[in-house]
Amino acid sequence: MQKDKSYIDTSKTVIDIRGLYKSFGDLHVLRGVDLKVFKGENVVVLGRSGTGKSVLIKIISGLLMPDKGKVNVLGRDVDQLDRKQLMELRLKIGFSFQNSALYDSMTIRENLEFPLVRHVKNLSRAEVNKEVESVLEAVGLLQTINQMPSELSGGQRKRIGIARTLILKPEIMLYDEPTAGLDPITSIEINELINEVQERYHTSSIIITHDLTCAKITGDRIAMLFDGQFLRVGTFEEVFDTDEERVRSFYDYNFTE
């Protein structure tokens, strides 16, 4: 099914990364990364495991700081912000973790309420319940509201993780390996959910994955990360219409026998 791209506004850049470097000791993970994400756009960052894909979105959300380069998110340089400003920026960023990172000592309702009651003041109990139920309905899991995270399947946990970020109505969504460890049917459901989130909430997203099906379904543009740099950036067809060996081998592994 062809994606509706009418809500992508290429005149507005929400994430602008220039000359980004990041190392851990002697391990040079990112070596001069440049990337722009436009308003309403889903950009998939593809690459092998351990190539620094997750490091990239951790820098965007301010969990890690860059060694060199500029990361501008919604008009603000992440490395120039003090703690208060960073917290304010994070309210506009949703982060879906690879292993969902649900608070396992809380019920699903408490997981979802947790950021809401701390950031939106003077909400009545009824309003909190309404918001929680609304996002749970959006991810199709209203029935799990009183369950504990340990009672849910992997796919359900991913959906709840996404719901928890949606409750603050973010402008940017960062997905870290959204389909990792899921069966093909559940993976398709998660991919569709990512597109639904884009359509319904008009979010701009970076999706970190090594799953080409996920990239093809969710990505408006694909950026292939190799050896700490983007090798190719473009639509799915543009990126894979090449004889470059590293890109071909990635494609062939996923789509040919």
Binding site: L63, F95, N99
Partner: peptide, 21 residues
């Protein structure tokens, strides 16, 4: 053990990125 487990399962990072201290 509880905080250690929250750290390694990224629950502490999840609080951080949802702008909760």
């Amino acid at each position: 053990a509880e905080l250690g487990s929250m750290r390694v399962t990224e629950q502490i990072d999840a609080m951080e990125v949802s702008a909760v201290n």
